[in-house]
Design a binder for these strands. Structure first.
Length: 685
DNA sequence: GAGCACTGC
């Protein structure tokens, strides 16, 4: 059935006002050339700054900050708030003394590009007045840097050494509408800090409508200390078209709609949001078939998703050849992470795949859910970055009105043991009574506390143990991984463990070509590194070979490994090794003793153990949940081992264990007796 | 026989 659309609203008429667009040039510069659209390139920087909508609010913002401790700023992307407000504060003298303005961002790429932009605007060298800090890259100068951009995790780490954040005069949390787990923890902690440091100012910057709720959170149990200001964004107008009837099959809906746009609308590229990889491939195939039937069509159909190899990703950023129209079929990656230039039309089916943690089964489910209003608005905005655009929503206006304002915060749908350990280390004793902006389910907190106790990070009273718990909290790792790393010296294999753990932090190292022949070749080559002990040791094997290569790039190219990812893993490993030295854990290697590595892993992963049930499926030892080996595992095609540990469970149509490791059941009793004493006999039968 | 997207002293 062809999707039908209402006419665009009359008030969304084209009104082209060329102005500076790029609040956040958020294209990953590691991948591609950076595309920063700036239609005011011929204007002086000062003129450009004054054209930003935020400029009109400058004095008002400064006034409000004088009178309120917390300012909640609502403004769409493009308003210039992330770049301008820190400069206004700096010029207004908020950095007198030795204090700084700190701005947090959820992504590293935002941190570096914003800091670069602002230091250009102030005509200073990056790292002097304006600096940034991300993991592995501290580009600030002590006593010189006044405006500091950083990732949220960095500010949280700073709280461990400076709990009241005395270095800062103003903290600005940016992109708060994304509600990452760090944003929520920071808001909870900052609420406490604000009470103790009345001179500290907090700016919460958000793109959406949840401002009232956040304002209420900061006003609770204090005087009216928080206020809201809305700033107009600066995107070109985007006309909104809703489907008249619900679209039953969104794959067909996307295909029909893009074809209809192509046949009836003026030039301009099309971006369609799709849930998953197979749907992308399906739609791309259908559109290509359509293109092939009609030789007169000048259409360029491109897929875009995170696991696409680099050279394929770059294609969507290339300027569309004259007379052609580009159609990009993308996952959610195009919603916030990357900005594709030239998009005028957006097709939005209104669904997304989201991760959900189930504390009863201790598993993550990947579920398809309707997007939020905030996402719908963000997606629509992707059509208005070049000139006025159009969004085609494959759902009705009534459907839109029923959407949640925003996706539930990550805090409410994720595994919490890392977060709880951090809070304990920051002196929050009663986690259940902590002021969470959106409290997580109590069950999720309980499960996290139990795991931390089983790992030995907490004692029976729930206090951080010394030194184990305290040290685990210091490490930038999941508590299970932290436990494994800190124990690796005793097992004589810290080098191997550091390799494995670093590979578990990064994205998939395997490049999966989309062409069938190459995909087969990649799979055959991967076999060279596979070992019967499972995925974690196979990964170690690959990494050991990688480390020995003189020409690492060529090695990766030959075996279809992702060089960029392995390079990042090398950095992570080096950091882990230096952390081991810091905490006096011997850095040793036992390349031939695989059992030592396996036992060391078991000493932390014991709660993620499963045994082969006579039904042919696996069962967790506690909970008795049915599990299966993920088809991507090296164990998938081998004889099923009796006992395994795993790094992760994903629940799609079944529960799959990923990143497996073959173990012996005696090790569980030996290494985690407190956890397994009572249940092991049942499981071991 | 399966894969939304990010991210940390």
């Amino acid at each position: 059935m062809m999707a039908k659309f209402l006419k665009p609203r009359e008030d969304d008429d084209d009104d082209i006002v060329p102005t500076w667009q790029s609040d956040k040039p958020d294209v990953n510069t590691d991948n591609v050339t950076s595309f920063i659209f700036n239609s005011n390139v011929s204007l002086g920087l000062e003129q450009q700054k004054q054209r930003l909508p935020i400029f009109k609010n400058k004095n008002h913002i400064l006034y409000l900050l004088e009178n309120y401790q917390t300012l909640i700023l609502v403004g769409e992307t493009g308003s210039g708030k992330s770049t301008q407000i820190p400069q206004y504060l700096f010029e207004a003298g908020w950095c007198s003394g030795s204090r700084l303005i700190g701005i947090t961002e959820p992504r590293r790429i935002s941190v570096t590009s914003l800091a670069t932009r602002v230091s250009d605007e102030l005509r200073t060298q990056l790292g002097h007045i304006v600096g940034y800090t991300i993991r592995f890259d501290d580009c600030t100068t002590e006593d010189v840097t006044k405006i500091k951009y950083m990732t949220e995790g960095i500010l949280m780490r700073e709280m461990m050494t400076d709990p009241l954040l005395r270095k800062y005069a103003v903290i600005m949390l940016d992109e708060v509408h994304e509600r990452t787990i760090f944003t929520d923890i920071l808001m909870g902690l900052l609420k406490k800090i604000l009470k103790k440091r009345s001179q500290l100012k907090l700016i919460i910057s958000s793109a959406t409508v949840d401002a009232e709720e956040i304002c209420h959170f900061f006003n609770m149990s204090t005087t009216n200390n928080a206020t809201i200001l809305s700033v107009k964004g600066q995107l070109y107008p985007v006309s909104i078209n809703y489907a008249i009837d619900p679209v039953p099959n969104y794959v067909q809906g996307v295909v029909d709609t893009t074809i209809k746009i192509h046949e009836s609308m003026p030039v301009g590229d099309i971006l369609a949001f799709v849930i998953g990889l197979d749907q992308i491939e399906h739609i791309v195939r259908l559109l290509k078939e359509y293109v092939n039937q009609r030789t007169d069509l000048k259409l360029l159909v491109l897929p875009m998703h995170g696991s696409l190899p680099n050279n394929e990703q770059i294609k969507v950023f290339r300027p569309t050849p004259r007379g052609m129209r580009k159609i990009v079929i993308a996952t959610n990656i195009a919603e916030t992470s990357i900005t594709i230039p030239g998009i005028v039309y957006v097709v939005d089916p209104g669904f997304v795949k989201a991760q959900w943690f189930n504390p009863n089964t201790l598993t993550n489910s990947l579920v398809v859910v309707p997007i939020s209003k905030a996402s719908a608005i963000q997606r629509a905005g992707r059509a208005g970055r070049v000139r006025s655009g159009h969004v085609y929503r494959l759902y009705t206006e009534d459907n839109f009105k029923q959407l949640n304002n925003s996706t539930p915060p990550e805090m409410q749908r994720t595994e919490l043991s890392s977060a709880v350990l951090q809070l304990k280390a920051l002196g929050i004793h009663n986690i259940l009574r902590f002021a969470f902006p959106s409290p997580p389910p109590a069950q999720n907190l309980r499960v996290a506390l139990e795991l931390l106790f089983a790992l030995g990070a907490l004692d029976e009273e729930g206090n951080l143990t010394k030194p184990l718990g305290e040290t685990m909290a210091e490490l930038p790792l999941h508590p299970i991984h932290a436990k494994v790393l800190l124990g690796s010296g005793e097992f004589g294999c810290s080098d191997e463990i550091a390799s494995i753990l670093s590979l578990l932090q990064v994205q998939d190292i395997f490049i999966k070509p989309s062409s069938g022949a190459l995909a087969l070749k990649a799979r055959v080559l991967k076999r060279n590194f596979e070992v019967e002990q499972g995925d974690l040791l196979s990964l170690l094997n690959i990494f050991a070979f990688y480390e020995q290569q003189d020409n690492k790039k060529e090695f990766c190219h030959k075996y279809f490994f992702n060089y960029k990812v392995l390079k990042r893993a090398t950095e992570l490993k080096a950091q882990m090794i230096s952390l081991l030295r810091k905490y006096n854990v011997p850095v040793v290697s036992s390349p031939r003793n695989t059992n030592a590595v396996l036992k060391c892993l078991t000493s932390g992963f014991f709660s993620n153990a499963a045994y082969l049930h006579h039904s042919g499926a696996y069962h967790t030892v506690r909970g008795n949940e049915e599990l299966h080996i993920h088809p991507s595992s090296v164990l998938y095609t081998l004889q099923q081992p009796q006992w395994v540990i795993f790094n992760e469970i994903v629940h799609t149509n079944r529960s799959y264990m990923k990143d497996l490791c073959v173990i012996e059941h005696d090790w569980l009793l030996e290494l985690a007796p407190h956890y397994y004493q009572t249940v092991i006999n049942f499981g071991g039968r």
